[in-house]
Design a protein around this nucleic acid. Structure first.
Lengths: 112, 112
DNA sequence: ATTATATACATAAGAAAATTATGTATATAA
DNA sequence: TTATATACATAATTTTCTTATGTATATAAT
């Protein structure tokens, strides 16, 4: 709907931002963090989250390592250098889009 | 990715809001209005807009009438009563989601 | 003991929405 | 006469999300 594919990629931007702030997280942890931050209003489903993580890894923005805790596997994700470099601009894009959306939805009459 | 399908339906919310403020608009006019309000940063493509309009009409939220101007057809859309009743809550939902997104992307550390 | 819930990963089928490309047609400016 | 603007529309493809399902361990509750 816009020039830049933003509405689609929001989940990826969220993931990248969380990993910028936390340096390493595993999938389940991400779902919990999002739930915590949004007071339960946004719930990541596994069906959305894991494919998104895999895609970001395939694109070289994330890398993984595995740990065993309590006999359960944890697959940790962290930003690659490339991933780290891209976060700021992704956030800028997202912010710009949100701003436009605010303009459109509040529709402060465009003084014109 | 969240409980309510919001990221997807943003275009529809934009359309409904524009029609709430302008009472009647035709498709091309909507594309120009969005371009104007967002200073050219969001461009609706016809492939996204027209199907969205048709869907809102099929759902009973919009109704249409046609006019001929300069030998060209204009298909005007306006809110039905049902459509008008729904706009506010759609806007509230959108606003709530944007707020959550802000929380996630700015990541004011959740004091916890 | 057993059942439910939490933790932890993953994929597959289907639906919904957007992008891109294409098509028709008229009016106007270059 | 050619390009651009106006004005509609759809079809193929891609992307993303939802929903459902599957495996497996740990822990709390009954």
């Amino acid at each position: 709907m816009s020039t830049n594919p933003l509405l689609k990629g929001t989940l990826q931007t969220i993931i990248l931002k969380l990993l910028e702030d936390n340096s390493q997280m595993y999938g389940y942890e991400i779902t919990q963090k999002v739930k915590e931050i949004t007071a339960g209003e946004i719930k990541l489903t596994e069906g959305a989250l894991y494919p998104a993580l895999h895609k970001l890894e395939a694109e070289g923005l994330l890398e993984t390592f595995t740990e065993i805790v309590d006999n359960r596997v944890r697959k940790y994700y962290r930003l690659t250098e490339e991933g780290g470099n891209g976060v700021a601009s992704k956030l800028d894009e997202a912010q710009a889009f949100i701003d436009q959306l605010q303009l459109l939805l509040n529709l402060k009459p465009t003084t014109k």
